[in-house]
Write a protein that binds this DNA or RNA. Sequence first.
DNA 1: TTCCTGTCTAACAACAATTGCAAATTGGGC
DNA 2: GCCCAATTTGCAATTGTTGTTAGACAGGAA
Lengths: 144, 144
Amino acid sequence: MKAPAELTELFRSQGLKITPQRVAIFEALHGNDAHPTADSVYDTVAADMPSISLRTVYQTLNDLTSMGELHQLQFGVGSARFDPNTTAHHHAVCERCGQVRDLAVDFDGVDMPRARSGHLQGFRVTATEVVFRGLCQACQTDSG
Amino acid sequence: MKAPAELTELFRSQGLKITPQRVAIFEALHGNDAHPTADSVYDTVAADMPSISLRTVYQTLNDLTSMGELHQLQFGVGSARFDPNTTAHHHAVCERCGQVRDLAVDFDGVDMPRARSGHLQGFRVTATEVVFRGLCQACQTDSG
DNA sequence: TTCCTGTCTAACAACAATTGCAAATTGGGC
DNA sequence: GCCCAATTTGCAATTGTTGTTAGACAGGAA
């Protein structure tokens, strides 16, 4: 995701308005690697701007997603998570606490999307997602 | 997933009852590689047993899932999908029509879960899922 | 600065997927 | 066939998200 100032520019260049709500959301996301849900973004922003509505947060997150500035992730449990890191990487999801950790994308030099492309039989791949499920270190010792 | 007869045995051995509803659901799933949703399983079963409730379908799908006979998949759009194929494989999801195709799991001999395990820093991986997103052959020609 | 217009926000209703609950029903050991 | 715990049903509740709309506001023009 671009920095708040650049996003401001981007929005303006598309004829969209710069509102305090949007700026607050840009700032809450910038450099955030916690893979927040819409609700936790709302909590963060609402701390300083209690009048903001969850609806506005969803709206802006969706706008950013369709501009490609944000990736929406869905790990099958709970709500959608948003990831400002749009570079290629994958995720490790803790089944116990729900924490999501970023992982480097390099699997010993194997280019995932193209690997065994023969098996994709005519399917045109535009994105590849890898999710590792298991237990984070804290939860291993916790539950052991 | 085991065959209906074996599932009957399995359920019975766990003190669970064999009801016509359950048997019908076993049969609807057996050999089904369409990755059906709860609702489409319901439709299938309800064709022959109109009195069955969607609630019962959910219940049984969840039971089968917690016995490990079924895998629940969530591709981030629409409802959960259920997969009676519990052997290692991954999925190609068409972004346009929603169709899900099974893919062989072998990526040129790379053992995904262990690859670059150094990057998983203490995270204990129990399952690895790979999702390829894109367009199936039909949708490529359709939209072109 | 002020006005104007189209966009945005907030509040609330609607919605889809799934689960909780309680009452009625039923499988299967006796 | 009886009985009881397990199951099914129907419906309400819940969760996460989106639709709607009236009023508020950003930002260009005068």
